[in-house]
């Protein structure tokens, strides 16, 4: 992106400092056993080497901070670099962890909550203060959604008790639940809510999408077709998980 120059009097600014949301994958440690971490990391990266190449990643030790006093950050950082990752910081640690991390060049990151980027939870919490409008926008459809029909629920969830036929399109700003067979297209979080999910009883969809990240039928694994699944975003990739 070209830098923007703004002229104020005689001065030309070379940069601006702004805070912006950045999505960062977290390496959430469940153990401080560096050998075990290394082995699992190797396996994980082998599955998607391109995805992890030069990927910045923060280390989240929230789950083990109370129990572990001596986390070997030197070894951890070395392992991550060896696998092509760029360790950028630590979060979820206590004071003693933070000092150790800073000594090996990691920054200390503070997240509002450990598992989620800061913005979406704020969005979902604001309506609470105003009575309960979030629930009221949701819609329940009891009839089959037929080919050629489109249903969109603004600012809420969509629940379909029946089937969604091929050629039908269901969309919601929130989550989508389909308790019959989903054969059409389902798009959750169409206004960009990356936390929204799709749940369906029998996945045979033409297309599924969460927050603009989509998968077409051809790219859906056969083992996930015809079974109950949930579909959500994790580290910017669409995960279809059997329920």
């Amino acid at each position: 992106m070209p830098p923007t120059h703004s002229v104020t009097g005689e001065f030309t600014h070379a940069f601006e400092i702004k805070s912006g949301p950045v999505n960062l994958p977290l390496l959430k440690l469940l153990s401080d056993d560096v050998g075990a971490i290394s082995a699992q990391l190797r396996q994980k990266i082998r599955q998607a080497p391109d995805f992890f190449r030069n990927a910045p990643m923060a280390i989240d030790i929230h789950s083990i901070a109370d129990a572990s006093d001596n986390i070997d950050f030197i070894a951890l950082v070395r392992i991550m670099r060896d696998y092509g990752l760029i360790p950028v910081g630590l979060c979820g640690g206590q004071e003693r962890h933070n000092q150790a991390a800073q000594s090996v060049g990691l920054s200390v990151l503070s997240l509002a909550r450990h598992e989620q980027p800061p913005s979406p939870p704020q969005v979902s919490e604001t309506p609470k203060s105003k009575s309960p409008p979030a629930e009221m926008h949701s819609k329940i459809i009891e009839q089959p959604v037929r080919s050629g029909q489109r249903i969109y629920v603004a600012a809420g969830d969509l629940v379909v008790m029946s089937q969604v036929s091929a050629g039908a399109e269901i969309m919601a700003d929130g989550n989508i639940h389909v308790y019959g067979t989903l054969r059409g297209r389902a798009l959750a979080g169409v206004q960009g809510n990356l936390e929204s999910r799709i749940f369906c009883h029998d996945l045979q969809a033409e297309l599924v999408s969460v927050g603009g990240h989509y998968k077409i039928s051809e790219n859906i694994d056969d083992s996930l077709r015809g079974v109950p699944v949930q579909i959500f975003l994790q580290d910017q990739s669409l995960i279809i998980q059997r329920l």
Partner: peptide
């Protein structure tokens, strides 16, 4: 079958 499904949608709406 798909065209019938489409027609059912029109019948319903």
């Amino acid at each position: 079958v798909r065209d019938s499904d489409r027609m059912l949608g029109i019948l319903a709406s």
